[in-house]
Structure formats: C-alpha cells, structure tokens
C-alpha cells in the first residue's frame, strides 16, 4: 500500500506504536509484585544477578510478556476483523460469546477426559468457530446489525448461557474444575510456553489469510452490492473472516483463557487514528493489542501487590467504561 496519501499517515503511527510497545514490554519485564526490584531486573536482563532474579525474568516475566504480546495481536486483529465484517463497532469476540464458546468447548473436552495440555488448542478453536458462526448469523439478522442494545443483549445472552453450561460441567467434575477454574479467568501468568509455541502456526496462518482478504474486506465496508460491483465475492470473504477470527480467538483463548473487551477497545482506538479503512485499522490493531494487554497485565501485578489481580478482571475494569461510552454515544459510527 505505497502511495502518497496513506503512507505518510501510517508510517509514523506504526513507528510510534512500536516505540510505545517497546516501552511497555520493558515495563512488563522490570516491574512486578515480587521481591525483584526494577534495578535487579534490569541487571538480570543483561545476564547479571542472583539465580532468583534470572528465574523471575526469564522463566516468569519473559514468557508472560511474550504470551501477552501474542494474545494481544490475536485479539486486537480478531476484534478489528469481526467489527469490519459485521459492519458493527460493537461486534467483539469476547463480548459476543466467541471466547465463551471457546472456553465451554475446552471445559467439555476436559470433562470428557482430555488433559489440558494436549487437546486445548484444537478444541478451543472449534469452540470459537461455532461461537463465531452463531454470532455472525445473529449480527446479520435484520434489525440486529445496527441496533447496539440488541446486539449486546444477544451477545450477553449467549455468553451467560455458555458460562452457565461451563459451570454446570465443572460442578460434576472436581478434577477439571480445579484445572480449569484458574484458566477460565483470563490470565497470561503461569501459562505454558509450549502451548504458545503450539498456537504460533495457527496465528501465522490467520495473519496470512488476513493479508489476503484485507482489500476485499475494505470494499465490503461500502455495502454488499458495491463490493460485488467491484468484483469481490462477499460470501467467500465472510467465510474466510469467520475462519480467521476463530483461529485467532481460539489461539488466544487456548493460551490465556477468555479475555474480555480487548477486541472491542483495540480497534476502537485504532480507528480513531486511522479512519475506517480496515487495511489500516488492522495493522495498527496488531500493535495496540499487545500494548494494551501487556500494560493491563503489568498493572494487574502492581495494583493489588503483593497479590495479583487476574488479567480478565483488569481488562473488564478498563473496557467496561469504554463500552458504556460507545453505547451512550448518540449515534453508532457506521462501519
């Protein structure tokens, strides 16, 4: 997308975004609830310091930050994509039950005897796919598309239904309950790095597909007939989009559990800088996503120190006001 018109606006945005991301990553590595002071962590970063400091930095905070970045990219892009394809700025995977669908699928698999480390990734993705298909159908039903309250109600209904079903499953199975309780509250702390590596190919495929559908998707924002008049195939674009959202949300949920609001807030901020074109919103969302997630995770360690507030709680605290502001805005921005 090199041209005199978008490049000058995109490049500084991406550069400043990357700088902020670098600072956030550094803060996440240096700050924490434990005994390791920022100065000791800084030294450990360069390989000096006690075994304890090295352990905290390389075994705890490092993986945690990496996973945070991965989840942030996945949820940021998934949110932007989902809002674009449903042409509704409130269509967010977490808000509309896609993450909940993913969690439910994992809980079901656990109850049926799977161990959390083996099946999670695929199961979470299948759950996200079904949840996503449900939501897309709902979002395109007449009257729901541009009626924020009804869309949120539909999403809330689906989410609470799935969460109730998940609780029901766990009630019958104590082993799974212990294993999953911690996972159902989204968090990037203490997650398994090997799972993050397992989902990397999925996220890679999803981002590759994204590059492929970005331009047709942008045309879809002008309406079905206009997009078809420009030679695009809306049905195929939607299908690929659902697949990409499922891959991204499934991956994120598999490694970090359901994390609310991130997919809503990230594209909302990105659009503020880039305007409505999904080709620009997506790239900026991929930078803002990890910034917000890592920042929220770092805050969650500091606010209740020495205890930690779960990340899911943190993003909800930050995201809920934004959602209320968006719904209270006199008019929904038309996508």
């Amino acid at each position: 997308m090199s041209n005199q018109h978008t490049t000058p606006r995109m490049l500084p945005l991406l550069v400043s975004g990357s700088l902020i991301l670098a600072v956030t990553v550094l803060a996440s590595l240096l700050l924490g609830a434990g005994e390791i002071s920022p100065a000791r962590a800084w030294a450990a970063l360069w390989g000096y310091g006690s075994d304890e400091a090295l352990f905290v930095l390389y075994e705890l905070r490092g993986p945690r930050t990496l996973i945070g970045a991965l989840v942030g990219v996945a949820l940021g892009c998934a949110g932007a994509l989902m809002q674009a394809v449903s042409r509704n700025p409130l269509a967010e995977p977490g808000l509309l039950g896609v993450s909940a669908g993913s969690s439910f699928a994992v809980a079901l698999a656990l109850v049926l005897g799977a161990s959390i480390s083996t099946l999670t990734v695929f199961v979470a993705q299948a759950g996200a796919l079904v949840g996503c298909a449900l939501v897309m159908t709902a979002a395109r039903l007449n009257g729901l598309g541009h009626n924020p309250v009804r869309l949120i109600l539909a999403g809330a209904t689906l989410t609470s239904l799935l969460m109730a079903l998940t609780s029901l499953l766990l009630m019958f199975d104590q082993r799974s309950a212990d294993e999953i309780r911690f996972w159902v509250i989204g968090s990037v702390a203490g997650r398994d790095m090997s799972q993050a590596i397992q989902v990397l190919p999925f996220i890679g495929v999803a981002l590759g597909l994204l590059a492929f559908i970005a331009r047709p998707l942008a045309a879809l924002a002008l309406g079905e007939s206009v997009a078809r008049g420009l030679g695009e195939k809306p049905a195929r674009i939607r299908l690929i989009s659902v697949l990409v959202v499922a891959l991204l949300v499934g991956s994120a949920t598999a490694i970090a559990g359901p994390i609310a609001f991130l997919g809503l807030v990230v594209p909302y901020i990105a659009r503020h800088f880039t305007g409505p074109d999904i080709r620009r919103t997506l790239w900026l969302s991929a930078v803002i996503g990890p910034i917000l997630l890592i920042a929220a995770d770092t805050c969650s360690r500091l606010l209740a120190a020495p205890a930690e507030m779960p990340l899911g709680v943190m993003t909800a605290l930050l995201g809920a006001p934004v959602l209320i502001v968006m719904i209270r805005a006199r008019r929904m921005p038309l996508l």
């Binding site: 924002a221 002008l222 309406g223 007939s225 206009v226 305007g275 074109d277 921005p333 038309l334 996508l335």
Partner: peptide, 9 residues
C-alpha cells in the same frame, strides 16, 4: 447501487 453508505470518516 441505490442507498449507498460509506463508513464514517
């Protein structure tokens, strides 16, 4: 087409 809408902004 009839009744076209462009995204805001």
């Amino acid at each position: 087409p009839q009744d076209t809408h462009a995204p805001e902004g």
